[in-house]
Design a protein around this nucleic acid. Structure first.
Length: 764
DNA sequence: CAGTGAGCGAGCTTCCGCTTGACTT
């Protein structure tokens, strides 16, 4: 029985370091934080100097028992990460095991290499209680903000909502970007591009400045008809480009998104598998540092594979202001393994990491840039042709990314050129682009908000709460004019261009706009982009022993809590920004849009005084499909009060109604409801409605494999299954669905395990 | 599954950061 037990955070790490430590050491994992504030209760005693109550969460009970068993009568070594959270985990483990910090050995290492670990074992230290206190301050601050703010939203906006230091800023960024896009007015201008020739060789040259309007563009083309062109200058200058730093979590997420099209969550899942299989280093890191052994191996690999001139030693410094650097950068554990991974996507991600790591230690790419200026005989405007030639590929041999540029013909100053064609095309200024998952992560990291372990979960939570949706935007079509000068003739054409298209971009819901407005109005300091950065400054002072954590929190709470009290006085109506769209033509009553208890709603007539029992109640209706609270108009709103609408009859003479319910637009035929997906309930014709009804009947018929009354065998997205309306059972591989009789189906249902998963709450 | 809309009360929801694992209608 080994006399030492080493506790680390991750089981995969435990496995690796066990190999280096030999028989005297058993290595166990805490699986992250082992104690935390309770989920159900507030867990912080405001009246007792913010004293936290810690406990072992339900999903950690098993680990806690195992750790206690393993630590009994052994020397305990705590090798959790060397950052605020890691130090706190070490302290919590002490508390769990009933050990005084002086009774354990605290060790740290940033690389999982044999030298790093043996060196660490030789120099144990104590637990840094200042650092633990900094973590407690962080934890308690987040609890105070999250658990005092969220209930305000439940009461003033909608139950189940949430707010927090990180998620509320993420939502705010997306809301503000959307508003910039809405406010954007595309400005038109003209871009002139010419093709010029010297003998058989052609080059493309353009006017750098945009041309203000069509008449100026046309005049310029008229001038070009009779102009001659002469090379005024040829400038060549060398340039070099350096490789990007090795991956951190956020840059990996960005590169995997842009190069491989992976979502942030997908990237992390794949990286986790590669890490567990020992193929890459830890994937949740903010460090760009490579271990010495890795640097040496990479140098050797580059020199052997590409030659010495491709090698260039580099050490990178992180720019992230919140970086804690408890780990290495993300790199392959064995640089000689050029490809690895269990499936296609793991393969691609591994290769991306490999390329980035190797490239980071390679020579810069050498480029020769050429710029040719061309004078026009009858105009003061200058045409410019730019070209780039790659002289030495350097790191681009493994991590490319340069666009092919034009190779310019050999011309010298004074050479005359012939005009082949000139085109002036109308272009429009672009609105800012919406955030993608990856660019949001980038922005959050720049602001120092969130950590490598929370980027992916934050993106999920803002979607789960109904604040943010991933959406494609079709953009809008605009007509652009184009004037072309070919063979001495000016031709005019009109092009249809689509601007503002988007795929998979983060778009705010009406709920996000309402909540963001509420929070920026009443909690401006909390959703301030610098709030986290300022708090981090305070945590650093606690870590340095210059401040007491409870005093820091007390000072914060003194300014924060009054905001809570004040916001409680606000009426719902004020919180949810009602807007009057106009007047209902028939009744003269106002039409209002606002965020109701169940979502955005149109209201016809003012809400009556609650004391006035005889007052007429206003009429309510949902927003038209595709409209938001911000862009809905009176014209679009009015027909919504006419629903449900009488569409006509089925061939059998049953009445068809169309309306919008809580689950979207639907048709109603003889008490049966059919969702309307393709058509609008306001405009759907009788013929279209009949077809939808027939299609629906056909789909149901295809879904049923066997129908025994209560028990049915159905085709589902995961294959055939048995159901009695309440419980479902999958059909074993060795049985054929359509051969089952009622008795067999019943047996399957009885044998099926009760679903452990709660059915997911519906989002609206 | 196909109405609701104010505010109160019962009892539910909620934060961030550290980690992995379960397994669907």
């Amino acid at each position: 029985m080994p006399k030492n037990v080493v506790i680390v955070e991750s089981p995969a790490k435990a496995q690796t370091i066990a190999r280096f430590l030999g028989e005297d050491f058993e290595v166990k994992s805490s699986y992250g934080h082992i104690r935390d504030l309770p989920k159900k209760d507030f867990g912080v005693d405001i009246t007792d100097n913010f004293k936290p109550t810690y406990g072992v969460p339900a999903d950690k009970k098993k680990v806690a028992t195992e750790l206690k068993k393993a630590a009994k009568d052994r020397e305990v070594w705590l090798a959790t990460d060397e950052d605020r959270e890691g130090e706190a985990i070490a302290w919590h483990v002490c508390q769990l095991l009933g050990l005084k910090p002086s009774e354990v050995k605290r060790i740290v290492f940033h690389e999982i290499t044999e030298p790093a670990i043996t060196a660490a074992i030789k120099s144990p230290r104590g637990i840094d209680h200042n650092l633990v206190d900094a973590q407690q301050a962080r934890r308690v601050l987040d609890r105070l903000v999250g658990y005092e703010l969220s209930p305000i939203l439940w009461r003033k906006v909608k139950p189940g909502l949430s707010a927090g230091r990180v998620q509320s800023v993420a939502v705010r960024l997306i809301v503000e970007r959307e508003r910039e896009i809405r406010a954007h007015q595309p400005e038109a201008s003209f871009k002139l591009v010419t093709i010029l020739a010297k003998n058989d060789q052609q080059l493309s040259a353009e006017l750098i400045d945009k041309i203000a309007d069509r008449s100026t563009a046309k005049q310029l083309l008229e001038d070009l008809k009779n102009a001659s062109f002469k090379v005024e200058s040829v400038e060549q200058k060398p340039a070099s480009r350096n490789p990007a730093a090795p991956f951190t979590t956020s840059t990996l997420q960005q590169a995997a998104s842009s190069r491989l099209g992976f979502s942030v969550r997908q990237t992390m899942r794949l990286a986790q598998t590669l890490y567990e299989d020992g193929l890459i280093t830890y994937m949740r890191t903010d460090s760009m540092t490579l271990a010495d052994l890795a640097l040496q191996a990479t140098a050797k690999y580059i020199e052997a594979s590409f030659g010495a001139k491709y090698y260039h030693h580099r050490q990178y410094q992180t720019k992230s202001r919140s970086a804690q650097e408890a780990h290495e950068a993300i790199r392959p554990t064995d640089i000689n393994k050029t490809s690895a991974g269990g499936d296609e996507r793991q393969h691609k991600l591994y290769e991306l990491i490999w390329r980035r790591t190797v490239a980071s230690q390679m020579a810069p790419a050498e480029i020769e840039k050429t710029e040719i200026k061309i004078a026009i005989s009858n105009s003061s405007e200058i045409l410019t042709a730019k070209g780039e030639v790659l002289k030495f590929d350097g790191f681009m041999k493994v991590y490319g990314g340069i666009k092919d540029d034009q190779l310019l013909p050999n011309v010298k100053v004074g050479d005359g050129l012939e005009l082949v064609q000139a085109t002036a095309t109308e272009t429009f200024s672009r609105p800012p682009v919406r955030y993608s998952e990856a660019t949001l992560v980038k922005k959050l990291e720049e602001l120092g908000i969130g950590r490598p372990s929370t980027y992916a979960p934050t993106i999920s939570v803002v979607q789960d709460r109904g604040y943010i949706e991933k959406k494609d935007n079709d953009g809008k079509s605009v007509s652009a004019q184009q004037l072309s000068l070919i063979n001495g003739q000016i031709e005019e054409t009109t092009l249809e261009v689509i601007i503002g298209t988007d795929k998979n971009k983060l778009t705010p819901t009406d709920l996000a706009e309402v909540v963001t407005d509420f929070l920026t109005k009443f909690f401006a300091s909390i959703v301030d982009f610098d709030f986290t950065a300022r708090a981090e400054g305070q945590f650093d002072e606690i870590a340095d022993g210059k401040k007491d954590w409870q005093q820091v929190i007390a000072a914060f709470y003194e300014t924060f809590h009054p905001l809570i009290s004040r916001s409680q006085q606000v009426s719902r109506a004020e919180a949810v920004k009602a807007r009057e769209l106009g007047e209902h033509p028939a009744s003269g009553k106002p039409v209002i849009v606002r965020y109701g208890r169940f979502g955005p709603v149109l209201q016809l007539g003012q809400s009556p005084d609650p004391k006035d029992k005889t007052a007429q109640k206003p009429q309510f209706a949902p927003l038209p499909s595709g409209a938001t609270m911000d862009d809905v108009t009176l014209e679009a709103a009015l027909p919504m009060f006419e629903l449900p609408r009488n569409v006509g009859q089925t061939e059998q003479g049953e009445a068809i109604l169309a309306a919008i319910g809580p689950y979207g637009p639907y048709l109603k035929v003889d008490k049966k409801f059919i969702s309307l997906k393709e058509h609008d309930p306001l405009t759907v014709s009788e013929t279209e409605a009949r077809q939808v009804i027939i299609n629906q009947a056909e789909a149901t018929r295809l879904k049923i494999i066997a129908d025994f009354g209560q028990i049915k065998i159905l085709n589902g997205p995961y294959g055939p299954y048995v159901t009695d309306g309440k419980k479902n059972a999958r059909i074993p591989k060795n049985q054929v669905a359509k051969d089952l009789d009622e008795a067999a189906a019943r047996t399957l249902l009885e044998k099926a395990p009760k679903s452990k998963f709660r059915t997911k709450k519906r989002r609206r």
